[in-house]
Nucleic acid binder design. Structure first.
Length: 442
DNA sequence: TCTGGGGTCCTAGGACCC
DNA sequence: TCTGGGGTCCTAGGACCC
């Protein structure tokens, strides 16, 4: 048995914890670069604002309805998410952090400890609400896919915020009421295909032969979906790992395969120095993340994007890959490789709208594969690793980017944001992770 | 002027190996 | 008329998720 705990309108809820006056009022949170709407309060949803709607199109209506708008503040949301997971960890032997606002709990055998799972779910909700201020919904079922369905039902008004689908009769009834596109694992393309065949409900999908799903819905992915809908759990379980003090070591026990940092620019960039500055900054961010996870990379991919919405036809994203002789998490080596990739990729005169750095070919630090014929490419010398540790400590103590490589600050007059910086006109303070942003009673 | 970012998994096809 | 079998690795593309 699994429970899926999902935070309601998570980013909006995080903002409301520190601005209680927004309770009951329409609120939206924008994506990076203030691009589009990615979190909406129930009131904003009722006013017709859509997920992913471009901000520049919604702006007049947002003003008209007096909607409170926030730029996204991932520092705040990440910290609130960590607090929620901390609370959840006391309710189950295993917790899998599925995303910033969702976690699965391992409820196998739980009915022996808590015969009334509905009541137990309600206790989870109440405790998270009390200790973090974040409202949640809980779905409980024998597979992740059915728990997801239960959670969706729990979000509907009129329920207590907890739904239990523990018998075939219960989940079949729920599937009969669920539209096929609302099933977890059925995206836009599959939904269209199914609707063309007049398969409109979860129950109708589950009634198809297992082999049909295998044939037409992504091979084994479709087959797993079929089994999950019939109550047979077959998706992976990747619980978080904790140290003795109860602090999370890794939010998700699954091996990570890549680390990415990409951003849209506030305005298009074509100057080599500005592009180099951006790419170096993204490489440094990705490298820092790598070190946090105790990983090294030996593949650096640079990404440059032109206008995605230009009617030119061809692809808008271009990549160049640089292979390192040995895996590393050293910022200067990774930056060097990234700049090499950038030089190969950049077309003089072209205006780029976004850039990024993707690190892959990941290995755990200490298990680094040595190049057989390249003794010179031995692992980063200990002083370098120490230097990186110091860099991370300084940046964590004195604020992000307190210490950077010069190339990442190329044309930046001190104190002013770089030319390529994205917009974030409505950002709330870092209430929980920075002294400057500390919440104050006003 | 203006449309996010970070992931995962699977398949197919080609290169290459013995 | 007719050209093996078994395997790995890599990349590109498609689909999905939040």
């Amino acid at each position: 048995m699994f429970a899926l705990v999902d935070c309601n309108n998570f980013y909006v809820s995080c903002e409301r914890v520190f601005a209680p006056r927004l309770e009951g009022r329409p609120v939206v949170v924008l994506s990076n670069n203030d691009g589009c709407l990615i979190s909406r309060s129930d009131e904003a949803k009722a006013l017709g604002f859509a997920m992913g709607e471009p901000h520049h199109l919604a702006r007049p209506r947002l003003a008209q309805h007096g909607v409170q708008v926030f730029s996204s503040n991932y520092g705040l949301y990440g910290d609130m998410s960590r607090r929620v997971v901390q609370v959840l960890s006391s309710f189950a032997a295993g917790v899998e952090v599925y995303s910033i606002d969702e976690a699965f709990l391992d409820f196998s055998g739980m009915h022996l400890l808590a015969p009334d799972l509905l009541a137990y779910g309600a206790e989870v909700r109440a405790r998270v609400r009390q200790q973090t201020g974040i409202p949640t919904c809980v779905g409980i079922a024998p597979t992740k896919t059915l728990a997801k369905l239960a959670n969706r039902l729990a979000r509907k008004q009129g329920t207590s915020g907890v739904v239990l689908l523990d018998t075939p009769a219960r989940w079949q009834a729920a599937l009969a009421e669920a539209s096929v596109e609302s099933i977890w694992g059925v995206g836009r393309r599959y939904a269209r295909k199914l609707l063309e065949m007049n398969i409109t409900t979860g129950a109708a999908l589950a009634a198809l032969p297992e082999a049909w799903l295998r044939r037409h819905l992504g091979g084994v992915v479709g087959q797993r979906l079929w089994r999950e809908l019939h109550g047979h759990a077959c998706l992976d379980w990747n619980p978080a790992e904790w140290d003795e003090a109860g602090e999370p070591l890794a939010a998700n026990g699954a091996a990570r395969h890549s680390v990415t940092c990409t951003r849209s620019f506030g305005r298009p960039q074509h100057e080599p120095a500005a592009l180099a500055e951006a790419v170096a900054t993204f490489a440094a961010k990705a490298a820092e993340k790598l070190r946090r996870h105790g990983l090294g990379a030996h593949l650096v991919t640079v990404i440059l994007g032109t206008d995605r919405f230009a009617p030119t036809g061809g692809p808008s994203t271009h990549t160049a890959c640089v292979t390192l002789p040995a895996a590393t998490a050293d910022t200067s080596r990774l930056t060097q490789a990234a700049l090499q990739g950038l030089a190969r990729l950049r077309q003089p005169g072209t205006a780029y709208h976004r850039a990024g750095v993707l690190l892959s070919g990941l290995e755990r630090t200490g298990e680094v594969q040595l190049g057989l014929f390249e003794p010179a490419a031995a692992p980063v010398p200990p002083q370098r690793a120490q230097l990186m540790a110091t860099l991370d400590r300084l940046n964590s103590q004195f604020g992000r980017a307190a210490v950077q490589l010069a190339v990442a600050t190329a044309g930046k007059p001190s104190g002013r944001p770089p030319a390529w910086a994205g917009r974030a006109a409505y950002r709330s303070p870092l209430y929980t992770t920075s002294w400057e942003g500390l919440w104050q009673l006003s």
